[in-house]
Design a protein around this nucleic acid. Structure first.
Lengths: 237, 237
DNA sequence: ACAGTCAGTTAACAATTAGATAATAATGCA
DNA sequence: TGCATTATTATCTAATTGTTAACTGACTGT
């Protein structure tokens, strides 16, 4: 069997960031899509609140742009629901709104949005805000060497070292350990690992993750990946 | 080849909310069902007051919509009866009524309903009210770490610690203690525990809960789960 | 005091889940 | 092109987890 569309979309390097846009107006959706794709982002869309939630859980995008006024759960609701789940605690969220009044803006940010764009949308503003948001996060998060205990993970040099000894990992192996180590202690569901490391179109068998975990454990020599049976894996020293 | 995309019906994660609707008019029942299912909720129905109570005790839904005028116990009665039980203290209840007069509304809210919708029903109003109600609750619930006395339960790290000492629990064990600890002091009926932790389709024997409770007690070392004979269990330090 | 109910205990078993390993496929590179 | 590396799958096995059954003791109400 063979349906490997094998497409890369890993968050770590300069690979295309995934953006999910939810709005009920197809025109707006298309304007945004066009402008963001032109910027090199990978864009997905949803036309209402529920679809947004569904797709978010499927894709684990880097950024979600939510229209406030939508059928089947409005933007604020979607944001609140997603934020209750650990997996979306750090996902960037931008609200899109026709109401430019102060009060709704405040409410939006209280709900846990990272930014706010009011309609009518200027493509320029949109793009620069999105870029700014990524810059803000990327600058402190990505590219930076993770140092947990005696393990250092350097995504720039693509290198992992344990007690100063460099270990060479294959790409998938590296991406796996990088993901887990990015939030030490936090359990990543198998599902989540799949979409983050393998991408959302790729379908791989059940044992694939295990094999990679095994290889990482083997190569690193130390036991830093803990299995949580029936749930997932976590990085822990 | 097998592609079991690990199903996660873990209570902590986003599971479809269960709604029970009770009305004697099949048409109304269907209109509501249609609109709420479209919203992504899981809908169950009852055609009179007694059936409503019966199903409520079976399902422990997140929200119950009660018509006021029903055969075999009207909505207000059903609400009152349910509210006397701890298990339904926090269940959301909405009344449905043809009488739009003030007095009956006040009586309804006094009985402990959370909201009120008057017939004829506008699907839009219905849906937005329901969403609003859930928004109110969901936002404060969140998958956050529970801290009760010297016990910490962290669903993100899937970890329970007693006096700082980490204890490793299996999935079901964790879900059990998480449920009980989510409302310390409140008694959970065996039935309730079953539907919340095991799901409402699953049928397991009588002793299953006991065994899990025992294991949790054993692993935690301290006695924080109190048995209420003939009723259920509660978390208590 | 006695049946009856109910939960605690334990061990056995069944089912699920991940680890190990080897084989095969895909990919990248010289 | 051919070789080496990496990724995925297929099996088999080991371990853990979940469930059941059978027995025991405690409490309840008559």
């Amino acid at each position: 069997m063979k349906l490997t569309l094998c497409k890369q979309n890993v968050t770590m390097e300069g690979k295309a960031k995934q953006i999910l846009i939810a709005d009920d107006e197809p025109d707006i959706l298309e304007i945004i899509r066009y402008n963001l794709e032109k910027e090199g982002y990978e864009v997905h869309t949803a036309k209402d609140g529920n679809e947004a939630i569904e797709k978010a859980k499927q894709l684990y995008p880097d950024l979600i742009i939510l229209d406030i006024m939508m059928p089947r759960k409005n933007g604020v609701e979607v944001c609140q629901i997603l934020r209750t789940q650990p997996s979306f605690q750090d996902t960037l969220i931008i609200f899109l709104t026709a109401m430019s009044d102060e009060s709704s803006q405040i409410k939006g940010l209280e709900t846990g949005a990272d930014d706010y764009i009011s309609k009518p949308i200027s493509p320029k503003v949109l793009v620069s805000r999105v870029n700014a948001l990524f810059r803000r996060v990327t600058s402190k998060e990505a590219g930076k060497t993770l140092q947990i205990g005696n393990i250092a993970i350097d995504p720039v040099k693509f290198l992992v070292s344990v007690d100063g000894n460099e270990v060479i990992l294959a790409k998938k192996e590296f991406e796996l350990i990088y993901l887990l180590a990015s939030k030490p202690g936090r359990v990543f569901l198998r599902n989540e690992i799949l979409t983050q490391v393998w991408g959302n179109e790729v379908i791989v068998g059940d044992r694939t993750i295990d094999v990679h975990v095994r290889k990482v454990r083997q190569k690193l020599g130390i036991d830093c990946i803990t299995t949580v049976k029936g749930v997932g894996y976590k990085f822990e020293i």
